[in-house]
Amino acid sequence: MGHHFLDIAGARTLPTPGLVATDQAVEHVVAASAMGVVHGPAGLGKSYAVERALARHAGVAVSWVEFPSRPTMRLVAATLFEQLTRDPAGRRSRFVLTDELLESLGRGPRAVVVDEAQRLTKDCIEFLRYLHDDRRTRFALLLVGGDDAWSVLSREPMLRSRVYRRVALDPLTGPQVCELMGSFHPIYDGVDRELLALIDDHVGRGNLRHWAAFTHTAADLCARAARDRIDEEIVHNAFAVHGGVVDVGGGEVTTSAPA
């Protein structure tokens, strides 16, 4: 199962629209041994959502890989080989590695996840497509990436036409934050929606990673003050820790909280 950012004790998984859509997409992609893409801005929980969805498929072997910017095809082949076989690639050529990958990818139910897929080159995208299309293989291929991942991947018609499911994650809207974040952590239980909206306006911005960072700080402040949940004072102090100064008491609100 995936971990929350900062591994906050007591944090709960929220049924955000992105999580629900990713759950369904991964289910379909794994069942069909197809291709899927999950993309969106940093901090929205893409990798967590995919990892969580895959954890429900106990009989499916999962290989999770990530590459530096503009990797070579040989690096992609070697990394995949080592993930699949748990053996070092050594000095094998790309062609030898490809033959062994085709054999490995034909064994049993499997899912391959490529994180930060926007880093791939055209040749590497074509290489992954080739592995997936070969008649000897049958595996689910999930490409997960940042905000520009789809613009990179969709430039290749051969891959774009094969994408079975695509999920584009967006930041939570203000109403979604007010509806969902009260359940994220016990310190928000029963908290006024206006206070949640204030946190989102100045720190959260609909981004789960930003909310996790704020929650980590606020939970610590609550524990130090022997309080079960946040209040205006806790929020004021947490904003100060995160780089902003906010008058929560009804006056003008100013903040320099980081983007």
Rank of each mutant, 00 (worst) to 15 (best):
R107E: 14
V144K: 02
L102C: 12
L142M: 04
C124Y: 03
V163M: 07
L105E: 00
E116M: 08
G106V: 06
T121Q: 00
D170N: 12
L102M: 12
Y164P: 10
L159H: 05
R162T: 00
D99Y: 10
L105Y: 00
G106K: 09
V144S: 02
V113I: 03
A140T: 05
A149P: 14
V163Q: 06
L105H: 01
W150Y: 14
E156K: 12
R119K: 14
R129H: 05
V113T: 01
L143A: 07
E103F: 14
R136P: 08
L142V: 00
R129K: 10
V113R: 00
E126K: 11
Q118K: 08
L142G: 00
L169E: 06
R119V: 14
L141E: 01
R136N: 03
A149I: 05
F139Y: 01
L102I: 12
R129G: 08
V163N: 06
D170C: 10
T98M: 09
R165A: 14
L131G: 07
A168V: 10
D170K: 13
V144F: 01
V113W: 00
G108N: 05
T137M: 03
G145L: 02
R119P: 06
R107A: 12
V152F: 02
P109A: 03
S151H: 14
E156V: 15
R136A: 05
D99M: 13
K122V: 15
E116P: 10
L102Y: 08
V114R: 02
V113D: 01
D134R: 10
R160L: 12
D134G: 10
L131K: 06
V167Q: 06
A117I: 02
L143Q: 10
D148S: 15
G106A: 07
E100G: 10
V112H: 03
D148A: 15
E156G: 12
S161W: 06
R136G: 05
R166I: 11
E100A: 12
G146M: 03
R162C: 01
R155Q: 15
